[in-house]
Design a binder for these strands. Structure first.
Lengths: 254, 254
DNA sequence: AGGGTAACAGTCGTGACGACCAAAACCGGA
DNA sequence: TCCGGTTTTGGTCGTCACGACTGTTACCCT
């Protein structure tokens, strides 16, 4: 903040009430994996403007709380999740007219939660749903306000974070198989990864995933039961998997 | 933004005036290279609070402008630079009490400009100076408000951007030698890069730097004159140089 | 003219990574 | 119980990126 040091306006000891008033809100883009696809939690607006349209959850920031606390509160209200399940601020939006009623600046947060069937439990009357991001962004669904842009930015952020932090572990449960973890990368990046190579990259990094003794029950088609891992302490510092360039050069055409 | 969909408060058709009022400001962390070191532009506050302390430039957002426009305006006011010399939003800060006078939420921008001696020209009476970030953050200088944290975050952001975009070219002039460009990486990352390897990495990437025919005049100690390059179009998509792990293994100690 | 310095060119060895193959371990059905 | 299908897991191999290092070119200054 700070007052202009020079520049003329608001010189010395200005009146604290002589500034444009804004409403400050916090919006949370809640992402999760479901059925191998990336989903975003949207709620249907019950009031004007944009009544009946889908939007991301959010609300006013209170003067007594920090931005992060406000985001945490909104997340808990909407999903019941109150753990520190990864809440990252990724942008602020304040275009004039983005809210037709008044001047609103919103600070956007990205929340990653693991697949939960009871996500909508925390919400009351208003409709809420997990929508695949591919549908939410492909003009199939028109989002309220500038929320389409906000969701786009959130997805871009998680894509970037995926190869420089271990944010992928936030998508899966406290214990997971390597195949589960792999689907996170594949869904978010839209690529196909080799299971064996993925395993090697992840396991060789010390302190990233820790094998529990147990094994997961194979699914319907059978297969060798996979070992269950839990996230190590290195997950927030580095990523074992790096997104390669589009890397066109399949040897297939030979 | 959006009103809470449920949750009780502010139900249907609420009064637009029933929300906590905030002041919204935009602060700009202006970084540049000077003498092989990373510098930040600070201004000395002329009014209370924190009168006489150093702070980063900033000011109120106007309801008729976007956040980016406000940042651009502040940057121009402070430096005279009005070109699109890289202006990136990187954070919002709204802790209660961060401004003792009122509720202020600030949106922080990072601006990278090339070394200019006349940076302070745009400013009037108020004192302004380029301070090495190492001094500005090492408790040598106490910054006003939470500006120390904001500068720390800005530096962290530019460090990260350096190996996934070509932000380094924003530090140098429209035409530059590879050694110049290399000092940017070395100063921001605090590492030492081999000139020959750096050259290979940068030049082999197609469309990143484009050789002009001309050559730079060698400095005082002589040496072969370096070729002058200009930034290609790929600079905003990828980086030819990646920051390796701390990578301890210098053979120097032998 | 010669020493110093910096840009530029090339070599070499290590290691990371993707493509690929094969064994192990489980499923379901015949 | 045997067998094909499926998934995990372990291993090999070739390519290539990259750091370390050496040598050459072209300018400075004295």
């Amino acid at each position: 903040m700070t007052t202009k040091t020079g520049g003329g306006q608001v010189p010395a000891g200005y009146d604290p009430s002589r500034f444009p008033a804004f409403a400050v809100t916090v919006d949370v883009v809640i992402l999760t994996m479901s059925g191998g696809r990336l989903h975003v939690l949207l709620v249907r607006r019950g009031v004007a403007p944009y009544k009946g349209m889908w939007a991301i959850p959010g609300g006013f920031k209170r003067p007594t709380e920090t931005l992060g606390e406000a985001a945490k509160r909104e997340l808990a209200q909407e999903t019941g999740v109150d753990s520190a399940s990864l809440l990252t601020q990724f942008g602020a939006y304040g275009d004039p007219g983005r809210d037709p009623r008044m001047n609103v600046v919103t600070v956007a947060y990205l929340a990653v939660i693991r697949e939960v069937g009871a996500v909508v439990a925390g919400t009351d009357a208003a409709e809420a749903a997990l929508i695949p991001v591919s549908e939410a962004l492909n003009e199939q669904i028109e989002l309220a306000f500038d929320h389409a842009q906000i969701v786009r930015d959130a997805v871009e952020r998680v894509r970037a974070d995926l190869d420089l932090t271990g944010i992928a572990t936030a998508f899966v449960g406290p214990t997971f198989t390597l195949a589960e973890l792999r689907t996170v990368y594949e869904a978010v990046w839209g690529v196909q990864l080799d299971g064996a190579n993925f395993r090697r990259s992840v396991v060789t990094v010390d302190g990233w995933v820790i094998p529990t003794g147990r094994r997961a029950r194979p699914g319907a088609p059978g297969g060798k039961p996979a070992e269950l891992y839990r996230a190590g302490r290195m997950w927030k510092y580095s990523s074992p998997i790096r997104r390669s360039q589009p890397n066109e050069r399949r040897k297939a055409d030979s």
